[in-house]
Amino acid sequence: MMLARVADSLYWAGRYVERAEHVSRLAEVMLNATLDRSDAARHVAAITRGALGDPGGSGDLLDLARAMSLDRDNPSSVLMSLARARENARQVRDQITSETWERLNILYLRAVSARASASFAADPLAFLGEIVSDLHLFKGAADSTMSHGEGWRFMVTGVFLERAQLIARLLRASFGGGLAGAPEEPLALVTVLRMACALEPYLRTYTADLNARFILEFLMFDEDFPRSIRYATDQIEQHLNHLARGRELGRQDPQRLAGRLKARLAFADIGEVEGSGAGQILAAVEAESKAIHEAMYEAFVAYPLETRLPAA
């Protein structure tokens, strides 16, 4: 049993934390990969812009990285995501262990401090790398100190729902045009893997044989890698099943939608994707994640009161 508002805040804290981590990593990997002015670097810049939802953008990449990190007017900047994650966590401060809260609060205080922009300027890679590893600490603290009950499940569902959409968007930006037009430069391919924090696990699975087909297969269908879309949808379905247990949630219940998305991923394979292009299924992942989000809100948070009055 938990307050509807609290569940909603925990869910959003999870989403914003995941978004902050992803955008930090995108910016860091992009800066690292575009130090020279090769063709691959141009490709990486285009992928990054696509993954941010702004494929037509142009301009200096360091400026872009700064805007992605610290811009207060950019609603998806790392700073704004951290601020929102922390604001959500603060509203449910009594539900989060102190160990978990402090990790997030430290990060937030550092990102809003007057020194943040100077330390970004001095060493942007270190600045972003540190945010990513601190967010890992946050997740570790949440995992190992919070009770794995309802509240935690809402937060983790937020993380995976956000992740499924972010990875889908990254893959769409990289390989959306079908495998024929996919980048072939090893540097661009390595960069895509790095942006999904997947390089080392990929190498262990496929060895250093880098090609778009394997990368797509790994990031979409791998069963064990925590950033593959299939893994994320498995998690979403699992947590929603737990959350929905013993509840009447109506026909548009979120766990049914999650089950459908999971099945879609489970029964598709790379051959099918090769035929029709990855774009279609990736777009479906994004659309269905949105539908799950809305169904969750209807089922757990903004339900009509008259349907839930206790039996008199």
Binding site: L3, L305, P310
Partner: peptide, 26 residues
């Protein structure tokens, strides 16, 4: 115990409930 805000509570038939994820709780 839960930390509630005014918007989390509703009064129905003279009884105060909070809105939880699994419906109303007294």
């Amino acid at each position: 115990v839960p930390l509630v805000e005014g918007r989390d509570l509703v009064v129905h038939d003279g009884i105060v409930y909070m809105r939880t994820t699994s419906g109303l709780r007294r």
